[in-house]
Amino acid sequence: MVEILLVVGLLVAAFVGFNIGGSSTGVAFGPAVGSGLVSKLLAAGLMTAFALLGGWTAGREVIKTMGGQIVPQSEFTLAASVAVLFFVGFALLISNTFGVPASTSMTAVGAIAGLGVATGTLNEAVMLEIISWWIVAPVIAFWVCAVIGRYVYPYLDAKLELDSSPGPLVEFDNAGILPKLRLGPNTTPREAWSTVLVIAIACYMAYSAGASNAANAVAPLVGNGALKLNEGILLGAGAIGLGAFTIARRTLDTVGNDLTELPILAALIVETVSASLIAFLSYIGIPASLAVSATMCIVGLGWGRATRTVTLGEALGGKSPEMSVNALAAETQEEVPAMGQETETDLAGSDLFDPGTTGRVIFFWLLTPSLSALASYALFAMSPF
């Protein structure tokens, strides 16, 4: 019986990791795919490799937090671990079915917290610390990117000119004995280096996603000793990779195309800020949401750019342009206008973000951890494990 339950537990953990891969790949590589820099297939391969690296390094601390600090390890019986993972996987499956990048960490912690409340073993101090960071991290992400968008972005845009040229980025020269890789006919060296930088930072985001999210798939099983730490990391990363190659296509479309159309420079900023924030939290053992942080970076960056049409006093006083203005798509200017001198026409482009898509994303951020926590509490309150 124990062997059968262990097999079920491993399958459910793989199922959770599969859904994590589907959700986190869109967050990590959505901007790069939406900017046309990488294909979905390449994004999936890079996601798999760097998620494993993140889980193998900083992810160990998050596994320790979720596997024995929110509730005691003694509460993670094999049956309880399977039940917790089932609730996480079910909630994430609902989110991925609708093509929304869910908050996997919030969902997993919600399920574990439901177990702790039902059994009276919840470590309230640890939960308070985690929830505090859940509130603070998106605020930090928004305001850091808002400041960059308002004060730094236009100068970077004018200086770097990170625009995509038509045609292939690179191509093979078959004139010699051995084919040589060279830049495409319209590709400048600056564009080539900027593209490499965007992809590198997307890989950094994948690393952060693996560090934060590998624990969500395997922490209960590692906590009760059914899996050793290294075995759990390999299982979680492998399942994340499977999800990246399959169901991640819809979340890549949502983040890369539906939520906003990001130029190269904006993608660099969003990825750098959100990945750094999540990597830091992972190293201190806090399971945090890459989905929430990345999206708040996008909105903050756009808001900061849009408010350049008014002075700081007018912006703080509530006089700011409509959020339908997309300052991120502004044309490059060698001379940046002074604050308040730019017009909506100067900043106009496609919509900053689609309100319907943004509302759908926020709704599922709230729905998935709520479903997970309530279902977990109901089960453990009624049925002793």
Rank of each mutant, 00 (worst) to 15 (best):
A373F: 15
A202L: 03
A80F: 01
F87S: 14
V198F: 03
T260R: 12
C297N: 13
A315Y: 02
L366V: 15
G9A: 12
E191R: 03
G232K: 01
N174K: 05
G300T: 04
A381G: 05
L316E: 01
I148M: 06
V12T: 15
N186H: 15
A378N: 11
F76V: 00
G304V: 06
C297W: 02
A315P: 03
V273M: 07
A219T: 01
G210F: 08
T187R: 06
Q69F: 11
R182C: 11
L371G: 13
S282N: 13
G149L: 08
E191A: 12
S383K: 07
M339L: 14
A14C: 13
I284V: 15
S212M: 08
A338P: 06
A32G: 08
I247C: 06
L41P: 08
A348W: 12
V7W: 12
A202K: 01
F18P: 03
N19K: 00
P287D: 09
A217E: 02
A211R: 08
T107A: 00
G45E: 11
I4Y: 07
T104P: 02
N224T: 00
R60H: 03
G236F: 01
W303M: 03
W143A: 05
V292S: 01
A209M: 10
D157I: 10
T311Y: 14
I278F: 09
K180A: 14
G243P: 01
C145I: 05
G21Y: 00
R308M: 02
G225E: 01
L53Q: 05
M296Y: 04
V325K: 04
V147P: 02
A327Y: 13
F50G: 05
A267I: 07
L160R: 13
E331Q: 10
V7T: 13
I278P: 08
F380H: 07
N174A: 06
S95M: 01
N174C: 04
G356S: 11
A206F: 06
W133C: 05
F87P: 14
E231M: 10
A44N: 07
C203D: 03
L46E: 03
I177K: 10
T188N: 08
D354E: 08
E231T: 13
T188I: 11
P31N: 09
G30R: 10
P168H: 09
P384W: 08
N123Y: 12
L53R: 02
G302R: 04
I94V: 15
A217Y: 00
I148T: 09
Y155L: 06
I112Q: 03
K40F: 07
N186C: 14
V16M: 02
P369F: 11
A279Y: 11
E331T: 11
F76R: 00
M205S: 14
F29H: 02
D346L: 09
N19S: 00
D157S: 15
L379G: 04
S95F: 01
E171K: 10
N174D: 05
V38P: 02
G356F: 09
L5V: 14
A108K: 00
I284R: 11
L11M: 15
K228T: 13
L252D: 03
D163V: 10
F364M: 14
A13H: 07
A125N: 08
P321A: 04
W56E: 01
A175Y: 12
G120P: 08
L265Q: 06
P384G: 11
G176P: 06
V292Y: 02
G356K: 13
